[in-house]
Simulated assay, not measured.
Amino acid sequence: MPKSQVRKKKVYTPPSDVRPTATAATGKPSPVWVPILAVSLVVLGIGWLVIYYLSATQYPVASWGYWNLAVGFGAMVASLIVFTRWK
Protein backbone atom coordinates (compact mmCIF):
# COMPACT_ATOMS: atom_id res chain seq x y z
CA MET A 1 0.00 0.00 0.00
CA PRO A 2 1.45 3.44 -0.89
CA LYS A 3 2.25 5.89 1.85
CA SER A 4 0.01 8.95 2.04
CA GLN A 5 1.45 12.41 1.58
CA VAL A 6 2.32 14.38 4.69
CA ARG A 7 0.92 17.90 4.59
CA LYS A 8 3.12 20.59 6.02
CA LYS A 9 1.40 23.36 7.89
CA LYS A 10 2.55 26.89 7.36
CA VAL A 11 4.07 28.60 10.38
CA TYR A 12 1.80 31.37 11.63
CA THR A 13 3.34 34.80 11.82
CA PRO A 14 1.13 37.55 13.23
CA PRO A 15 0.70 40.77 11.27
CA SER A 16 3.27 43.46 12.02
CA ASP A 17 0.71 45.82 13.57
CA VAL A 18 -0.11 43.34 16.40
CA ARG A 19 3.39 41.97 16.95
CA PRO A 20 4.85 42.99 20.33
CA THR A 21 8.06 44.93 20.14
CA ALA A 22 11.14 43.81 22.01
CA THR A 23 11.53 47.10 23.89
CA ALA A 24 7.94 47.11 25.17
CA ALA A 25 8.29 43.65 26.69
CA THR A 26 11.51 44.25 28.60
CA GLY A 27 11.15 47.84 29.79
CA LYS A 28 13.73 49.63 31.85
CA PRO A 29 15.36 47.88 34.78
CA SER A 30 14.33 49.07 38.20
CA PRO A 31 16.57 51.37 40.24
CA VAL A 32 19.01 49.88 42.75
CA TRP A 33 17.02 51.16 45.74
CA VAL A 34 13.95 49.01 44.96
CA PRO A 35 15.33 45.59 46.01
CA ILE A 36 17.29 47.18 48.86
CA LEU A 37 14.13 48.80 50.24
CA ALA A 38 12.09 45.62 49.82
CA VAL A 39 14.60 43.41 51.62
CA SER A 40 15.02 46.05 54.33
CA LEU A 41 11.25 46.12 54.93
CA VAL A 42 11.15 42.32 55.21
CA VAL A 43 14.02 42.30 57.72
CA LEU A 44 12.48 45.20 59.66
CA GLY A 45 9.07 43.51 59.83
CA ILE A 46 10.43 40.15 60.94
CA GLY A 47 12.80 41.81 63.40
CA TRP A 48 9.98 43.90 64.86
CA LEU A 49 7.82 40.82 65.41
CA VAL A 50 10.67 38.74 66.87
CA ILE A 51 11.61 41.49 69.33
CA TYR A 52 7.94 41.93 70.27
CA TYR A 53 7.48 38.24 71.07
CA LEU A 54 10.86 37.64 72.74
CA SER A 55 10.42 40.65 75.03
CA ALA A 56 7.01 39.39 76.20
CA THR A 57 5.26 42.38 74.57
CA GLN A 58 7.44 45.00 76.35
CA TYR A 59 9.42 46.17 73.31
CA PRO A 60 9.57 47.83 70.67
CA VAL A 61 6.70 50.07 71.94
CA ALA A 62 4.89 48.73 75.00
CA SER A 63 2.04 51.26 74.90
CA TRP A 64 1.00 50.13 71.41
CA GLY A 65 0.10 46.65 72.60
CA TYR A 66 -1.06 44.45 69.76
CA TRP A 67 -0.58 47.26 67.24
CA ASN A 68 3.05 46.14 67.21
CA LEU A 69 1.83 43.14 65.22
CA ALA A 70 0.24 45.50 62.70
CA VAL A 71 3.52 47.38 62.33
CA GLY A 72 5.52 44.19 61.75
CA PHE A 73 3.09 42.65 59.30
CA GLY A 74 2.51 46.04 57.66
CA ALA A 75 6.22 46.33 56.92
CA MET A 76 6.20 42.89 55.32
CA VAL A 77 3.12 43.71 53.22
CA ALA A 78 4.78 46.96 52.14
CA SER A 79 7.81 44.94 51.04
CA LEU A 80 5.56 42.77 48.86
CA ILE A 81 4.22 45.91 47.20
CA VAL A 82 7.76 47.15 46.57
CA PHE A 83 8.80 43.71 45.25
CA THR A 84 6.11 43.96 42.54
CA ARG A 85 7.97 47.00 41.13
CA TRP A 86 11.24 45.08 40.79
CA LYS A 87 12.20 44.15 37.23
Rank of each mutant, 00 (worst) to 15 (best):
A78V: 06
A62Q: 14
V39C: 04
Q58N: 13
I36D: 03
G65F: 01
L41I: 05
V43K: 00
T13R: 14
V77I: 13
S16K: 15
S4M: 07
I81T: 09
S16N: 10
A56H: 11
D17Q: 12
V34A: 03
L69M: 08
L69Y: 15
G74H: 08
L69A: 05
G47Q: 05
N68A: 03
K8E: 14
L80Y: 04
D17C: 08
F73R: 00
A78T: 11
K8P: 06
W86N: 13
I46D: 01
P20T: 06
P14L: 09
Y12H: 13
G65N: 04
G74Q: 05
V34W: 04
V77Y: 09
M76W: 02
V82G: 02
R19Y: 11
T23D: 08
P60V: 10
A56D: 14
L37C: 12
L41E: 01
P2Q: 04
S16F: 07
S30T: 14
V43F: 06
P29A: 09
P14N: 05
G45M: 03
K28F: 04
V71E: 02
Y52H: 12
M76Q: 09
L41F: 15
Y66M: 02
R7T: 10
G72W: 03
L44W: 03
L41P: 02
W64Q: 07
T57P: 00
P35F: 01
V77P: 00
Y12V: 15
S30V: 06
W48H: 12
P15H: 10
I46Y: 01
N68I: 04
L41D: 00
S30C: 10
P31V: 08
Y12R: 14
K10G: 11
K87N: 12
A38V: 03
W33Q: 14
V42G: 01
P15G: 10
V43A: 13
G45P: 04
V77H: 02
V82I: 15
T26M: 05
G27F: 00
A24D: 12
G27P: 04
I46L: 12
K10N: 13
T21D: 08
T13I: 14
M76Y: 00
A70C: 08
A62E: 14
R7G: 03
G45Y: 03
K9P: 07
L69P: 00
A75L: 15
G27V: 04
V71P: 04
G74F: 06
V61W: 07
S16P: 10
K10Q: 15
L49P: 00
Y59E: 14
W86A: 10
R19D: 08
G65P: 02
G45I: 02
P2N: 06
A78N: 05
I36E: 06
P29H: 08
P15N: 11
L49S: 04
V34P: 02
V43Y: 01
T26N: 05
K87H: 13
I81K: 08
K3S: 07
